[in-house]
Design a protein around this nucleic acid. Structure first.
Lengths: 228, 228
DNA sequence: CCGGCTCGTAACAAATATGTAACAAAGCCG
DNA sequence: CGGCTTTGTTACATATTTGTTACGAGCCGG
């Protein structure tokens, strides 16, 4: 669970502290010390979330929030407001201005991370978890279960994802590279041959129920899921 | 307000439209193009509601409805009938066959959602929560008491809430993060691993009555409550 | 029939995830 | 104010998964 986070904070010490906290939690960071700087950064990169200090030199954080909300490109970017004041009015103003959440300084790294996690989670795209079925072979993402003619089939997480992908993309041949992108993720670096091993493990798991022949090798091209 | 809805519709375009509408409303879906397919799906999963087209290849929708009503497992499942005909006779027949409601095509997504909501709401009381029971394991929110085959089981408040959540959301896998949100609350900041400890404590409490195996670990995904 | 590839498999070591126990802080109650 | 329970955290033990590699079998064009 990582993402790029824009930190808009004019106080260097606090900015540093925040950035450190975020990095430790596995996030990438973009720093800005003012509204202008932030705007410029956003022209070239689109963060997954913005952490904006309430008090900023020049235009205030509220102003920046309004701007972000006004721009179609950044309209739906989650925003968390940082405020030193704790009176209710400010909080409400921050929320009204379009922020998704606010944190009152001083705050602990733990709290910061939790809020970020919560906000990102709220925006997380709904994963489709419809049950997929083919000839008695059933994959249910909601219960994380695979059954062959009603009998539970055990397999590791990777094999599960692999099978799910195959079953939602049947008949087509998928190259090893494609499978890596789709099942492992764009960013991960693993050998192509690793796929073969997982294919083997998946086949082995399906073997007991007799569904192993559904995963076919297409020499020189990749693998395909389809009725034998 | 979510639930799994079985869509039985042979016309692909209409099926797709319906599924889209349902998804947008936050429901999970199961698709079937015929009575046979629907029957097979129901053998392995129990939807919260069924949307059945009147005209289907092979056995008709009315026939499917009768079957569902005849099976104890699906006896009380709400059913909404989709019909292209608008004459009164058909409507009455549909209702007589055991459907809870009927919708005449063409229908708007809004209407579909409204009807579904209405039907589900009618059934809601049983979900809302009074005493929850599974195979002799009983959780009573009113008295805050858990019994296994009649014998009281002692546990801490957190374990109680955890168990209650599990029992009202069986079968599904819940990630540690989801559990934190649902059982602890959005705003609480605790480590993910804390869940494991409470799971352990809950299992330990249930152990004496032999219900500990109901809480299953799904490696890489989270925990699930279901019959062993 | 001979290389040259591609794929299937098994074995292995490292990385991860989960189970458990112990501990200290925070609550709770009489 | 003590005792007692509940909680969250951590460290360590186990268990499982994952990625790599090495080797051999099968396929194919020449």
């Amino acid at each position: 669970m990582s993402g790029t986070i824009l930190v808009v904070e004019d106080e260097p010490a606090i900015q540093e502290l925040i950035v450190m906290t975020l990095k430790r939690a596995g996030h990438e960071t973009l720093r800005a010390g003012s509204v202008e700087e932030a705007s410029k950064l956003i022209d070239h990169a689109l963060p997954d979330l913005a952490l904006i200090d309430w008090m900023l030199p020049g235009a205030s954080g509220v102003e920046l929030t309004r701007r972000l909300r006004g721009n179609p490109r950044t309209q739906s970017m989650p925003i968390i407001m940082l405020t030193a004041r704790s009176d209710e009015d400010d909080k409400l103003l921050g929320l009204d201005s379009g922020a998704d959440d606010y944190i009152t300084k001083p705050f602990s790294p733990k709290e910061l991370n939790a809020r970020i996690k919560a906000v990102l989670r709220r925006r997380a795209p709904e994963i489709t978890d419809d049950i997929v079925e083919t000839n008695g072979l059933m994959v249910d993402p909601a219960t994380h279960r695979v059954t062959g003619d009603g009998v539970t089939i055990e397999m590791g997480p990777t094999e599960f994802r692999l099978l799910h992908f195959f079953m939602t993309h049947r008949e087509r041949v998928h190259s090893r590279t494609q499978l890596l992108d789709q099942v492992w993720g764009d960013h991960v670096f693993v050998e192509d041959r690793t796929i073969d091993v997982h294919i083997r493990r998946l086949r082995q798991a399906l073997e007991a129920s007799g569904y192993d022949a559904y995963i076919q090798t297409v020499r020189g091209a990749g693998y395909r899921f389809s009725k034998p």
